[in-house]
């Protein structure tokens, strides 16, 4: 679990950023941030909270260069996400697919969509209702690391499962 500690901190930081600029992603309609939570994260001590999902379950999977196939570790993370979503039915998810900057803009949008879709397909295959999971791709538009080296690119080639409370119940 050690590798997820850093990720959890990152998510917390970005989520705070999103709070100060609610309109960053336009319209404010869904409040879907690139890495935001779209709602109050709650305490990670509460296993039904978004914070717990991000930190303990793991909200993201990483991909190899130009690939959208889940790694074994990625598969296990998504299976955990599926279990959590099956238990916590009050949440809906948007899976956000991303690419690193080493690609053309349009292709990266399509590649990010493939990555998000790979996560959604596994979630749905585990019994998560498909209408609870939407996908979106940001291509290379929302990097979380900006160093132009493989260490950063690896963090950017990701699919992040972002939860919101399902207000319509």
């Amino acid at each position: 679990m050690k590798t997820w500690t850093k990720a959890a901190f990152l998510v917390a930081a970005v989520a705070l950023g999103a709070c100060t600029d609610a309109d960053r992603f336009g319209g404010g309609s869904g409040g879907f941030g690139a890495d935001g939570t779209g709602g109050v994260a709650g305490s990670s001590a509460d296993p039904t909270s978004i914070a717990y999902f991000q930190e303990a379950v793991g909200d993201r999977v990483l991909f190899a260069v130009d690939q959208s196939t889940l790694s074994e570790q990625g598969r296990l993370t998504v299976l955990s996400q599926a279990n959590w979503l099956l238990e916590n039915t009050d949440y809906v998810a948007v899976v956000e697919g991303h690419a690193d900057e080493q690609g053309t803009r349009e292709y990266n949008l399509a590649l990010g969509a493939r990555r998000a879709s790979a996560v959604k397909e596994l979630l749905v295959s585990q019994g998560v209702a498909s209408n609870r999971v939407r996908t979106v791709s940001y291509g290379k538009e929302r990097p979380i690391e900006v160093c132009s080296q493989e260490s950063c690119y690896a963090q950017n080639r990701r699919a992040v499962t972002v939860l919101t409370a399902n207000v319509s119940g």
């Binding site: 992603f25 336009g26 319209g27 309609s29 869904g30 879907f32 803009r105 349009e106 949008l109 538009e141």
Partner: peptide, 20 residues
Amino acid sequence: LAPRFSPKGDRVLYTSYETG
């Protein structure tokens, strides 16, 4: 992203995340 002029230059197509 990626605005594109119409052949007469009077309109522009583009991609927006306005709806998320």
